[in-house]
Design a protein around this nucleic acid. Structure first.
Lengths: 149, 149
DNA sequence: TACAATTATATCGTGTACGATACAAATGTA
DNA sequence: TACATTTGTATCGTACACGATATAATTGTA
């Protein structure tokens, strides 16, 4: 076999891509009772932290584009998780506010991070290794999400 | 702010999800000239390593389901990258074979891993840290992809 | 103050992902 | 050898992602 650099097992990208999908799958049993998908859960994390923000704020926080977030919020609105209304200062801006139902979900979600970590952690990964992983990925995420000059 | 465990910045899942997307985006300028998407590139990696394999082989290698891979291969067949034919030993099995065009693409792809690493590596990440990251993620991928008993 | 440039959001089209389901071929078993 | 089970693949429906494009509101500037 020539070109060992093209072997699947020599790629860094593939484990990232796979682990990302596998973790999303691992969330499902915990999110399904709340009626949330994983991207919807991320939106809720942003709103639980700061309610009444613009769509733009959400796209910046999640590093997603408006053409992903806009329909996502629409689906969540139709589930009565949130409301959209125009800002009075700037008519272009849409402000997203949680409904009572959306706010109340926070308490039900409180256990998820703990439960998920337990679900996806493996015996041969120490807490320190997990922490190291998070640091490296965050550093990388910041570097990759910086506008290229 | 109560429930700090629900802060976006305290999640491990989010940087994985984001880095995965950002890397896929980083591939695009290199894959677009070859007419490949990122998942299609992964399929090509499998086929360049072992041509003439079953669809099942590809799904196991990429940890994807048939309902993702089947249409993916159809799109690639319509681009004349590969051909599908029934196995003679087992009529259920579909064998995927690269076309000349598909095989020839391997040489054009040879530079991609090197170029991509250069494109996504940041100054504050050492080669050792990248290697450590790959090892941790591979270990985790293996653990997560194991059937749960 | 006209008007070009920018900003915030929405829409369209294509390509994944994936749960659920279907179905034919092969295999195991009474 | 009938027949239940398993295996390999395909199809359907829904929900992202994202490039490209559109549009209205705001801002910058001559």
């Amino acid at each position: 076999m020539d070109k060992p650099e093209l072997l699947l097992e020599n790629q860094l990208c593939f484990p990232i891509y796979s682990v990302s999908r596998l973790i999303t799958q691992a969330y499902q049993p915990y999110l399904e009772p709340l009626g949330l998908t994983y991207p919807q859960y991320l939106v809720m994390l942003v709103l639980w932290e700061n309610d009444g923000v613009s769509i733009n704020h959400i796209t910046r926080k999640l590093l997603l584009n408006t053409n992903t977030v806009s329909p996502l919020l629409k689906r969540m609105e139709s589930q009565s998780l949130l409301q959209r209304k125009r800002s009075e200062q700037d008519e272009r801006t849409v402000i997203i506010e949680l409904t009572k139902k959306g706010s109340a979900l926070k308490n039900e979600a409180a256990e998820i991070p703990h439960n998920l970590l337990a679900a996806v952690s493996s015996e041969n990964m120490s807490a320190e290794e997990v922490n190291q992983l998070k640091n490296t990925l965050c550093k990388w995420m910041d570097a990759l999400s910086k506008p290229k000059q």
